[in-house]
């Protein structure tokens, strides 16, 4: 149990995918303009991360490793995740139209997202068990949601502020992103102190 908590909270705070590992920066800057789209994107990322890990972990352990073709990992994972998201999208369109309307436009954006691919590969690299891998993916997704939630708040403040002309738009957004990222370094050592 303690092991699981450590994995979960490390994934959310210490090893936050966006702010500590710098994965998934594109959606982090792209859809954080307002809270609604940010939360829609985050929900889609959590769902896809869980799904992708659930599919890629068995593929690596039961297919790639026994056949000794582990070097095909990246290629196979990208292929599988892209196809998976495509299928989930079509199924959702038919079975759950309201959910499709809420998440639909974000799903194609995630197919080749490095945060999703990153979590699946890290699960294998860290030699997690299947359960641990799922917890890690869930934590990574929540961490992504947290980063987007915080940053959309920051961006709404930026939008209403009087910013020097030269910094308006992307420059001030990048500066703000780096400051938010620095704030997450405060979590280094947190897990060891709580659980250690």
């Amino acid at each position: 149990m303690e092991q699981m908590m450590i994995i979960l909270f490390s994934a959310i705070l210490v090893d936050n995918f966006v702010l500590s590992k710098f994965l998934g920066i594109c959606p982090f800057l792209g859809v954080s303009k307002n809270l609604k789209t940010a939360m829609g994107m985050s929900a889609a990322v959590v769902a896809i991360m869980l799904l992708a890990s659930a599919i890629t972990w068995p593929i690596q352990i039961f297919l790639l490793d026994p056949l000794n073709i582990g070097f095909l990992q990246t290629l196979v994972f990208i292929l599988v995740i892209a196809a998976l998201v495509q299928m989930v999208e079509t199924m959702m369109k038919k079975a759950m139209p309201p959910l499709y309307k809420a998440l639909g436009i974000y799903l194609p954006l995630i197919t080749t997202n490095c945060a999703v691919l990153g979590v699946t590969i890290l699960n294998i690299n860290k030699a997690y068990s299947f359960l641990d891998a799922m917890i890690n993916s869930f934590g990574a997704g929540l961490g992504f949601a947290l980063a987007l939630f915080l940053f959309s708040g920051v961006r709404m403040r930026i939008e209403k502020s009087d910013i020097p002309k030269a910094l308006r738009g992307l420059p001030i957004t990048l500066v703000a992103a780096s400051l938010v990222s620095v704030s997450f370094f405060a979590f280094k050592g947190l897990i060891e102190n709580i659980f250690g």
């Binding site: 599988v80 196809a83 299928m87 079509t90 199924m91 369109k93 038919k94």
Partner: peptide, 15 residues
Amino acid sequence: LLGVLIVIVSNIFKV
């Protein structure tokens, strides 16, 4: 395999 699978799934779940 995945390509064929996508085609099958999109045919089953056609809106």
